[in-house]
Design a protein around this nucleic acid. Structure first.
Length: 421
RNA sequence: GCGGAAUUGGUGAAGUGGUUAACACGCUAGAUUGUGGCUCUAGUAUGCAUGGGUUCGAUUCCCAUAUUUCGCCCCA
Protein backbone atom coordinates (compact mmCIF):
# COMPACT_ATOMS: atom_id res chain seq x y z
CA UNK A 1 0.00 0.00 0.00
CA UNK A 2 1.39 3.38 -0.96
CA UNK A 3 1.22 5.84 1.90
CA UNK A 4 1.11 9.60 1.69
CA UNK A 5 4.35 11.55 2.15
CA UNK A 6 5.18 12.38 5.74
CA UNK A 7 3.43 15.44 7.12
CA UNK A 8 0.88 15.77 4.31
CA UNK A 9 -2.85 15.26 4.57
CA UNK A 10 -5.75 13.96 2.54
CA UNK A 11 -8.61 16.38 2.95
CA UNK A 12 -12.14 15.09 2.48
CA UNK A 13 -15.40 14.72 4.36
CA UNK A 14 -15.79 16.77 7.51
CA UNK A 15 -12.36 18.35 7.33
CA UNK A 16 -12.88 19.45 3.75
CA UNK A 17 -16.23 20.95 4.66
CA UNK A 18 -14.71 22.89 7.55
CA UNK A 19 -11.90 24.25 5.37
CA UNK A 20 -14.36 25.30 2.71
CA UNK A 21 -16.52 27.01 5.31
CA UNK A 22 -13.52 28.84 6.77
CA UNK A 23 -12.42 29.97 3.35
CA UNK A 24 -15.83 31.48 2.67
CA UNK A 25 -15.89 33.16 6.06
CA UNK A 26 -12.44 34.63 5.48
CA UNK A 27 -13.47 35.81 2.05
CA UNK A 28 -16.44 37.64 3.51
CA UNK A 29 -14.23 39.26 6.15
CA UNK A 30 -11.77 40.25 3.42
CA UNK A 31 -14.57 41.94 1.50
CA UNK A 32 -15.59 43.90 4.57
CA UNK A 33 -12.05 45.12 5.06
CA UNK A 34 -11.72 45.79 1.31
CA UNK A 35 -8.91 43.31 0.64
CA UNK A 36 -8.65 41.66 -2.76
CA UNK A 37 -7.90 38.00 -3.42
CA UNK A 38 -4.52 36.98 -4.79
CA UNK A 39 -2.67 33.85 -5.79
CA UNK A 40 1.00 33.26 -6.42
CA UNK A 41 2.87 30.17 -7.70
CA UNK A 42 3.38 27.19 -5.41
CA UNK A 43 7.11 27.41 -6.13
CA UNK A 44 9.39 30.37 -6.66
CA UNK A 45 13.03 30.96 -7.41
CA UNK A 46 14.79 30.20 -4.14
CA UNK A 47 16.17 33.69 -3.67
CA UNK A 48 12.65 35.05 -3.15
CA UNK A 49 12.60 33.32 0.20
CA UNK A 50 16.31 33.24 0.96
CA UNK A 51 16.62 36.98 0.63
CA UNK A 52 13.08 37.77 1.68
CA UNK A 53 12.66 35.68 4.80
CA UNK A 54 16.32 35.87 5.79
CA UNK A 55 19.35 33.62 5.31
CA UNK A 56 19.85 33.04 9.03
CA UNK A 57 16.27 32.04 9.83
CA UNK A 58 15.51 28.41 10.58
CA UNK A 59 12.86 28.41 7.89
CA UNK A 60 15.46 29.05 5.22
CA UNK A 61 18.47 27.21 6.67
CA UNK A 62 16.78 23.92 7.39
CA UNK A 63 13.10 23.89 6.48
CA UNK A 64 12.65 24.74 2.81
CA UNK A 65 11.76 22.26 0.09
CA UNK A 66 14.45 23.11 -2.46
CA UNK A 67 14.86 21.51 -5.83
CA UNK A 68 16.64 22.12 -9.09
CA UNK A 69 14.37 22.06 -12.12
CA UNK A 70 15.24 20.58 -15.50
CA UNK A 71 16.56 23.92 -16.66
CA UNK A 72 19.03 23.95 -13.74
CA UNK A 73 17.17 26.66 -11.86
CA UNK A 74 17.15 26.62 -8.07
CA UNK A 75 13.54 26.55 -6.89
CA UNK A 76 11.77 26.46 -3.52
CA UNK A 77 8.28 25.36 -2.58
CA UNK A 78 6.62 28.35 -0.94
CA UNK A 79 7.22 28.17 2.86
CA UNK A 80 5.26 31.34 3.71
CA UNK A 81 3.09 33.84 1.90
CA UNK A 82 4.61 37.25 2.45
CA UNK A 83 7.84 37.10 0.46
CA UNK A 84 6.06 35.54 -2.52
CA UNK A 85 3.41 38.24 -2.53
CA UNK A 86 6.08 40.93 -2.34
CA UNK A 87 7.72 39.40 -5.41
CA UNK A 88 4.35 39.57 -7.17
CA UNK A 89 3.87 43.17 -6.04
CA UNK A 90 7.26 44.16 -7.46
CA UNK A 91 7.13 42.20 -10.68
CA UNK A 92 3.75 43.66 -11.58
CA UNK A 93 4.80 47.13 -10.45
CA UNK A 94 1.74 47.48 -8.28
CA UNK A 95 3.50 50.27 -6.37
CA UNK A 96 2.20 52.64 -8.99
CA UNK A 97 -1.07 52.57 -7.08
CA UNK A 98 -1.30 54.24 -3.70
CA UNK A 99 -2.14 51.26 -1.56
CA UNK A 100 -2.64 47.54 -2.12
CA UNK A 101 -4.54 45.22 0.19
CA UNK A 102 -4.34 41.51 -0.57
CA UNK A 103 -5.47 38.29 1.02
CA UNK A 104 -4.56 34.69 0.15
CA UNK A 105 -5.46 31.15 1.20
CA UNK A 106 -2.88 28.65 0.01
CA UNK A 107 -0.78 25.61 0.87
CA UNK A 108 2.67 26.21 2.38
CA UNK A 109 5.58 23.78 2.59
CA UNK A 110 8.19 23.29 5.27
CA UNK A 111 10.50 20.34 5.71
CA UNK A 112 9.99 19.65 9.42
CA UNK A 113 9.26 16.72 11.67
CA UNK A 114 5.45 16.61 11.90
CA UNK A 115 3.54 16.77 15.15
CA UNK A 116 0.26 18.09 16.41
CA UNK A 117 -0.52 21.32 14.55
CA UNK A 118 2.53 21.04 12.34
CA UNK A 119 2.74 19.65 8.84
CA UNK A 120 5.06 19.58 5.86
CA UNK A 121 2.20 20.80 3.73
CA UNK A 122 -0.31 22.97 5.51
CA UNK A 123 -2.80 25.67 4.64
CA UNK A 124 -2.36 29.24 5.60
CA UNK A 125 -4.31 32.34 4.88
CA UNK A 126 -3.01 35.82 5.29
CA UNK A 127 -3.68 39.50 4.74
CA UNK A 128 -1.03 41.93 3.53
CA UNK A 129 -1.02 45.69 2.96
CA UNK A 130 1.57 47.44 0.82
CA UNK A 131 2.18 51.17 0.68
CA UNK A 132 1.19 52.79 3.97
CA UNK A 133 2.99 53.70 7.14
CA UNK A 134 -0.17 54.55 9.05
CA UNK A 135 -0.15 52.96 12.53
CA UNK A 136 -3.90 52.67 12.26
CA UNK A 137 -3.29 49.87 9.77
CA UNK A 138 -1.14 47.98 12.30
CA UNK A 139 -4.14 47.86 14.59
CA UNK A 140 -6.43 47.03 11.70
CA UNK A 141 -4.28 44.06 10.67
CA UNK A 142 -4.33 42.75 14.24
CA UNK A 143 -8.08 43.26 14.35
CA UNK A 144 -8.67 40.94 11.38
CA UNK A 145 -7.77 37.63 13.08
CA UNK A 146 -9.50 38.87 16.21
CA UNK A 147 -12.65 39.51 14.18
CA UNK A 148 -12.43 36.06 12.62
CA UNK A 149 -12.16 34.40 16.05
CA UNK A 150 -15.10 36.43 17.22
CA UNK A 151 -17.25 35.40 14.25
CA UNK A 152 -16.35 31.77 14.90
CA UNK A 153 -17.10 32.07 18.60
CA UNK A 154 -13.54 31.11 19.56
CA UNK A 155 -12.79 32.46 23.02
CA UNK A 156 -9.51 30.92 24.18
CA UNK A 157 -7.10 33.30 22.51
CA UNK A 158 -4.40 35.68 23.66
CA UNK A 159 -2.94 38.53 21.60
CA UNK A 160 0.70 39.43 22.22
CA UNK A 161 2.17 42.60 20.72
CA UNK A 162 5.64 44.11 20.64
CA UNK A 163 7.71 46.56 18.66
CA UNK A 164 11.14 46.05 17.16
CA UNK A 165 11.48 49.72 16.23
CA UNK A 166 12.79 51.11 12.98
CA UNK A 167 16.10 50.13 11.37
CA UNK A 168 18.12 52.56 13.50
CA UNK A 169 16.56 51.44 16.80
CA UNK A 170 16.97 47.85 15.86
CA UNK A 171 20.62 48.34 14.99
CA UNK A 172 21.36 50.04 18.32
CA UNK A 173 19.53 47.35 20.24
CA UNK A 174 21.40 44.69 18.36
CA UNK A 175 24.73 46.16 19.38
CA UNK A 176 23.56 46.45 22.98
CA UNK A 177 22.55 42.77 23.00
CA UNK A 178 25.82 41.59 21.53
CA UNK A 179 27.76 43.61 24.10
CA UNK A 180 25.62 42.24 26.89
CA UNK A 181 25.82 38.57 25.92
CA UNK A 182 29.45 38.45 24.80
CA UNK A 183 30.95 37.92 28.28
CA UNK A 184 28.43 35.12 28.89
CA UNK A 185 28.78 33.36 25.57
CA UNK A 186 29.65 30.04 27.19
CA UNK A 187 26.46 30.12 29.25
CA UNK A 188 24.28 30.22 26.16
CA UNK A 189 22.91 27.17 24.39
CA UNK A 190 24.58 26.08 21.16
CA UNK A 191 21.87 27.63 19.00
CA UNK A 192 22.17 30.94 20.78
CA UNK A 193 25.95 30.98 20.34
CA UNK A 194 25.27 31.00 16.60
CA UNK A 195 22.52 33.59 16.96
CA UNK A 196 24.73 36.02 18.86
CA UNK A 197 26.58 37.20 15.76
CA UNK A 198 23.94 36.56 13.13
CA UNK A 199 20.69 37.52 14.80
CA UNK A 200 20.97 38.30 18.51
CA UNK A 201 17.31 39.27 18.81
CA UNK A 202 16.37 35.64 18.45
CA UNK A 203 18.11 34.86 21.76
CA UNK A 204 15.25 36.63 23.50
CA UNK A 205 12.65 34.02 22.70
CA UNK A 206 14.96 31.03 23.14
CA UNK A 207 13.18 28.48 25.26
CA UNK A 208 16.37 26.73 26.35
CA UNK A 209 18.00 29.76 27.90
CA UNK A 210 14.94 31.66 29.08
CA UNK A 211 15.19 30.44 32.68
CA UNK A 212 18.85 31.32 33.07
CA UNK A 213 20.17 34.05 35.34
CA UNK A 214 21.69 36.01 32.44
CA UNK A 215 18.26 36.45 30.87
CA UNK A 216 16.96 38.45 33.81
CA UNK A 217 18.88 41.66 33.21
CA UNK A 218 18.99 41.81 29.44
CA UNK A 219 18.73 45.27 27.89
CA UNK A 220 15.17 46.13 26.98
CA UNK A 221 14.14 47.01 23.45
CA UNK A 222 12.07 49.85 24.82
CA UNK A 223 15.24 51.59 26.07
CA UNK A 224 16.74 51.59 22.60
CA UNK A 225 13.78 52.83 20.62
CA UNK A 226 14.31 56.24 19.07
CA UNK A 227 11.60 58.85 19.55
CA UNK A 228 10.00 58.16 16.20
CA UNK A 229 9.65 54.44 16.94
CA UNK A 230 8.26 55.14 20.39
CA UNK A 231 5.65 57.52 19.05
CA UNK A 232 4.70 55.01 16.38
CA UNK A 233 4.16 52.20 18.89
CA UNK A 234 2.15 54.47 21.17
CA UNK A 235 -0.16 55.26 18.24
CA UNK A 236 -0.55 51.59 17.41
CA UNK A 237 -1.63 50.91 20.99
CA UNK A 238 -4.07 53.82 20.88
CA UNK A 239 -5.69 52.38 17.76
CA UNK A 240 -5.75 48.89 19.26
CA UNK A 241 -7.79 50.33 22.10
CA UNK A 242 -10.10 51.96 19.58
CA UNK A 243 -10.63 48.55 17.99
CA UNK A 244 -11.39 47.20 21.47
CA UNK A 245 -8.68 44.55 21.22
CA UNK A 246 -7.45 42.86 24.37
CA UNK A 247 -3.70 42.57 24.02
CA UNK A 248 -0.58 42.25 26.08
CA UNK A 249 2.77 43.86 25.35
CA UNK A 250 5.35 41.09 25.47
CA UNK A 251 8.84 42.54 25.12
CA UNK A 252 10.54 39.22 24.36
CA UNK A 253 8.37 38.66 21.28
CA UNK A 254 10.66 38.99 18.25
CA UNK A 255 9.36 36.43 15.68
CA UNK A 256 11.51 34.10 13.64
CA UNK A 257 11.47 35.91 10.32
CA UNK A 258 14.07 38.58 9.66
CA UNK A 259 11.94 41.03 7.78
CA UNK A 260 9.94 42.53 10.63
CA UNK A 261 10.23 46.15 11.77
CA UNK A 262 8.13 48.07 14.28
CA UNK A 263 4.99 46.16 15.22
CA UNK A 264 5.09 42.38 15.64
CA UNK A 265 2.28 40.26 17.05
CA UNK A 266 1.14 36.71 17.69
CA UNK A 267 -2.14 35.14 18.66
CA UNK A 268 -1.83 32.14 20.97
CA UNK A 269 -4.44 29.50 21.64
CA UNK A 270 -5.09 29.75 25.35
CA UNK A 271 -7.00 26.48 25.67
CA UNK A 272 -6.42 23.78 28.26
CA UNK A 273 -4.90 20.66 26.75
CA UNK A 274 -3.96 22.33 23.46
CA UNK A 275 -0.79 20.97 21.82
CA UNK A 276 2.66 22.51 21.93
CA UNK A 277 2.10 24.32 18.63
CA UNK A 278 -0.19 26.97 20.02
CA UNK A 279 0.62 30.01 17.90
CA UNK A 280 -2.42 30.33 15.67
CA UNK A 281 -1.39 33.44 13.89
CA UNK A 282 1.60 35.74 13.56
CA UNK A 283 2.51 38.87 11.73
CA UNK A 284 3.66 42.44 11.84
CA UNK A 285 5.14 45.31 9.90
CA UNK A 286 7.96 44.74 7.43
CA UNK A 287 8.90 48.16 6.13
CA UNK A 288 12.28 47.13 4.75
CA UNK A 289 11.38 43.86 2.99
CA UNK A 290 10.32 45.38 -0.31
CA UNK A 291 13.57 47.33 -0.53
CA UNK A 292 15.55 44.19 0.35
CA UNK A 293 14.01 42.54 -2.71
CA UNK A 294 15.17 45.42 -4.93
CA UNK A 295 11.91 47.36 -4.86
CA UNK A 296 11.16 50.97 -4.04
CA UNK A 297 11.20 51.79 -0.34
CA UNK A 298 7.61 50.83 0.49
CA UNK A 299 6.16 50.28 3.94
CA UNK A 300 4.10 47.11 4.37
CA UNK A 301 2.55 44.82 6.95
CA UNK A 302 0.46 41.70 7.30
CA UNK A 303 -0.20 38.44 9.07
CA UNK A 304 -0.53 34.72 8.37
CA UNK A 305 -2.73 32.18 10.10
CA UNK A 306 -2.42 28.38 10.14
CA UNK A 307 -5.68 26.80 9.07
CA UNK A 308 -5.04 23.42 10.74
CA UNK A 309 -4.22 25.09 14.03
CA UNK A 310 -7.35 27.18 13.79
CA UNK A 311 -9.33 23.98 13.24
CA UNK A 312 -7.58 22.37 16.23
CA UNK A 313 -8.64 25.32 18.35
CA UNK A 314 -12.23 25.08 17.12
CA UNK A 315 -12.23 21.39 17.93
CA UNK A 316 -10.74 21.97 21.37
CA UNK A 317 -13.60 24.36 22.12
CA UNK A 318 -16.11 22.00 20.53
CA UNK A 319 -17.16 24.55 17.95
CA UNK A 320 -18.71 22.93 14.88
CA UNK A 321 -18.90 25.00 11.72
CA UNK A 322 -20.48 24.33 8.36
CA UNK A 323 -23.98 23.27 7.52
CA UNK A 324 -25.33 19.79 7.59
CA UNK A 325 -25.29 18.14 4.22
CA UNK A 326 -28.73 18.26 2.62
CA UNK A 327 -30.30 17.33 -0.67
CA UNK A 328 -33.47 18.88 -2.10
CA UNK A 329 -34.62 15.62 -3.56
CA UNK A 330 -33.72 11.94 -3.94
CA UNK A 331 -35.16 9.82 -6.72
CA UNK A 332 -36.12 6.23 -5.92
CA UNK A 333 -36.82 3.71 -8.64
CA UNK A 334 -38.79 0.54 -8.07
CA UNK A 335 -37.01 -1.33 -10.84
CA UNK A 336 -34.43 -0.74 -13.54
CA UNK A 337 -37.25 -0.07 -16.01
CA UNK A 338 -37.67 3.42 -14.57
CA UNK A 339 -34.01 4.38 -14.82
CA UNK A 340 -34.13 6.29 -18.12
CA UNK A 341 -37.13 8.21 -16.83
CA UNK A 342 -35.17 8.91 -13.66
CA UNK A 343 -32.21 10.15 -15.69
CA UNK A 344 -34.39 12.68 -17.51
CA UNK A 345 -35.89 13.83 -14.26
CA UNK A 346 -32.47 14.19 -12.62
CA UNK A 347 -31.29 16.32 -15.50
CA UNK A 348 -34.44 18.46 -15.44
CA UNK A 349 -34.28 19.13 -11.73
CA UNK A 350 -30.57 19.78 -11.60
CA UNK A 351 -30.63 22.23 -14.48
CA UNK A 352 -33.44 24.06 -12.69
CA UNK A 353 -31.23 24.52 -9.67
CA UNK A 354 -32.14 21.70 -7.31
CA UNK A 355 -29.68 19.37 -5.64
CA UNK A 356 -30.80 15.90 -6.55
CA UNK A 357 -29.33 12.42 -6.41
CA UNK A 358 -30.38 8.85 -7.06
CA UNK A 359 -29.25 5.29 -6.42
CA UNK A 360 -26.46 3.89 -8.58
CA UNK A 361 -25.87 0.63 -6.72
CA UNK A 362 -29.11 -1.17 -7.63
CA UNK A 363 -30.21 -1.12 -4.03
CA UNK A 364 -33.60 -2.34 -2.98
CA UNK A 365 -36.32 0.02 -1.87
CA UNK A 366 -35.25 -0.04 1.73
CA UNK A 367 -31.67 0.67 0.80
CA UNK A 368 -32.71 3.61 -1.35
CA UNK A 369 -34.74 5.11 1.46
CA UNK A 370 -31.78 4.75 3.77
CA UNK A 371 -29.58 6.51 1.29
CA UNK A 372 -32.07 9.37 0.99
CA UNK A 373 -31.98 9.64 4.79
CA UNK A 374 -28.24 9.71 4.84
CA UNK A 375 -28.23 12.80 2.63
CA UNK A 376 -31.06 14.47 4.58
CA UNK A 377 -33.23 14.68 1.50
CA UNK A 378 -36.14 17.06 1.85
CA UNK A 379 -38.18 15.23 -0.78
CA UNK A 380 -38.25 11.79 -2.30
CA UNK A 381 -39.71 11.06 -5.71
CA UNK A 382 -40.74 7.44 -6.12
CA UNK A 383 -40.80 6.14 -9.68
CA UNK A 384 -42.59 2.93 -10.57
CA UNK A 385 -44.41 1.51 -13.54
CA UNK A 386 -47.52 3.50 -12.71
CA UNK A 387 -45.75 6.85 -12.42
CA UNK A 388 -43.83 6.45 -15.64
CA UNK A 389 -47.00 5.50 -17.50
CA UNK A 390 -49.23 8.30 -16.21
CA UNK A 391 -46.69 11.06 -15.58
CA UNK A 392 -48.21 11.46 -12.13
CA UNK A 393 -45.29 11.44 -9.72
CA UNK A 394 -45.34 10.25 -6.14
CA UNK A 395 -43.56 12.87 -4.08
CA UNK A 396 -42.91 12.32 -0.42
CA UNK A 397 -42.19 15.25 1.88
CA UNK A 398 -39.66 13.87 4.36
CA UNK A 399 -40.12 16.67 6.85
CA UNK A 400 -43.95 16.71 6.98
CA UNK A 401 -43.99 12.98 6.25
CA UNK A 402 -46.81 13.30 3.75
CA UNK A 403 -47.14 11.97 0.25
CA UNK A 404 -48.49 13.88 -2.75
CA UNK A 405 -49.25 13.11 -6.36
CA UNK A 406 -47.77 15.76 -8.61
CA UNK A 407 -47.90 16.02 -12.39
CA UNK A 408 -44.44 15.83 -13.91
CA UNK A 409 -45.01 19.22 -15.53
CA UNK A 410 -45.64 20.80 -12.14
CA UNK A 411 -42.81 19.21 -10.21
CA UNK A 412 -40.40 22.12 -10.63
CA UNK A 413 -42.98 24.66 -9.45
CA UNK A 414 -43.86 22.37 -6.57
CA UNK A 415 -40.25 22.04 -5.42
CA UNK A 416 -39.67 25.76 -5.96
CA UNK A 417 -42.46 26.51 -3.52
CA UNK A 418 -41.46 23.94 -0.95
CA UNK A 419 -37.68 23.99 -0.97
CA UNK A 420 -36.85 27.23 0.74
CA UNK A 421 -33.71 28.30 2.50
C1' G B 1 17.97 17.15 12.65
C1' C B 2 17.18 14.55 17.94
C1' G B 3 14.05 11.54 21.51
C1' G B 4 9.45 8.56 23.25
C1' A B 5 4.89 5.77 21.80
C1' A B 6 2.00 3.48 18.07
C1' U B 7 0.22 0.86 13.20
C1' U B 8 -5.16 -5.40 13.76
C1' G B 9 -11.79 -5.58 8.26
C1' G B 10 -15.12 0.16 5.59
C1' U B 11 -14.79 2.50 11.01
C1' G B 12 -13.84 2.31 16.60
C1' A B 13 -11.25 -1.36 18.73
C1' A B 14 -10.17 -6.45 22.13
C1' G B 15 -6.59 -10.27 21.80
C1' U B 16 -2.84 -14.57 21.51
C1' G B 17 4.24 -17.94 20.05
C1' G B 18 0.24 -23.13 17.92
C1' U B 19 -6.65 -25.89 14.76
C1' U B 20 -12.46 -21.08 13.58
C1' A B 21 -8.86 -13.20 15.22
C1' A B 22 -13.80 -11.00 20.51
C1' C B 23 -17.27 -6.99 20.74
C1' A B 24 -19.58 -2.59 18.67
C1' C B 25 -20.80 0.65 14.55
C1' G B 26 -21.32 0.46 9.39
C1' C B 27 -22.61 -2.27 5.10
C1' U B 28 -25.58 -6.42 2.48
C1' A B 29 -29.82 -9.65 2.51
C1' G B 30 -34.36 -11.33 4.81
C1' A B 31 -38.77 -10.87 8.32
C1' U B 32 -41.80 -6.43 5.40
C1' U B 33 -42.53 -8.76 -3.16
C1' G B 34 -44.44 0.09 -3.79
C1' U B 35 -42.42 3.18 1.48
C1' G B 36 -36.82 4.27 5.17
C1' G B 37 -35.64 5.65 10.48
C1' C B 38 -37.27 0.96 15.62
C1' U B 39 -36.82 -4.37 16.36
C1' C B 40 -35.25 -9.37 15.18
C1' U B 41 -32.32 -13.00 12.05
C1' A B 42 -28.23 -14.14 8.87
C1' G B 43 -23.81 -12.61 6.23
C1' U B 44 -19.53 -9.49 6.38
C1' A B 45 -10.54 -9.89 8.01
C1' U B 46 -7.55 -16.93 3.77
C1' G B 47 -5.51 -11.93 7.48
C1' C B 48 -3.15 -8.24 12.02
C1' A B 49 1.53 -1.41 7.87
C1' U B 50 5.69 -3.28 4.37
C1' G B 51 10.29 -6.19 3.89
C1' G B 52 13.67 -9.39 6.25
C1' G B 53 15.24 -12.57 10.53
C1' U B 54 14.63 -16.08 14.97
C1' U B 55 11.37 -20.56 15.42
C1' C B 56 8.85 -27.03 14.00
C1' G B 57 5.31 -22.84 13.85
C1' A B 58 5.07 -15.40 14.09
C1' U B 59 -0.40 -11.01 13.87
C1' U B 60 2.37 -11.91 18.67
C1' C B 61 9.72 -11.95 19.60
C1' C B 62 14.04 -9.21 16.92
C1' C B 63 15.85 -5.77 12.95
C1' A B 64 15.02 -2.37 8.97
C1' U B 65 11.69 0.81 6.14
C1' A B 66 7.14 3.70 5.66
C1' U B 67 3.33 6.35 8.00
C1' U B 68 0.83 8.27 12.46
C1' U B 69 1.20 10.43 17.14
C1' C B 70 3.60 13.15 21.49
C1' G B 71 7.76 16.17 22.74
C1' C B 72 12.68 19.13 21.62
C1' C B 73 14.17 22.85 18.05
C1' C B 74 11.39 26.17 15.20
C1' C B 75 6.96 28.00 13.27
C1' A B 76 1.26 28.71 11.11
Amino acid sequence: MIQKPKGTQDIYGKKAKTIKYLEKLIESVAEKYNFSYSRTPVFERSEVFHRGVGDTTDIVTKETYDFIDRGNRQMTLRPEGTAALVRCFLENKLYSENINKFWYFEPMFRYERPQSGRFREHYQFGFEVFGSNDPMLDAEIISIPVTIYKLLGLKGIKVNVNTLGDAESRKNYRIALINYFKPYINDLCDDCKQRLEKNPLRILDCKVDCEKEIMKNIPKMSDYLNDESKVFFESVKKYLDAYEINYEVKDTLVRGLDYYTHTVFEVEADIKGFGAQNVLCGGGRYNSLIKTLDGPDTPALGFGMGVERLMNALEAEEIVVGDKKTLDCFIITISDNEKTYAAKLLYDLRINGFSVDADYLSKNLKGQFKEADKYNSKFIIILGEEEVKTGMLTVKDMILKEENKIYKEEIIDFLDMNVGD
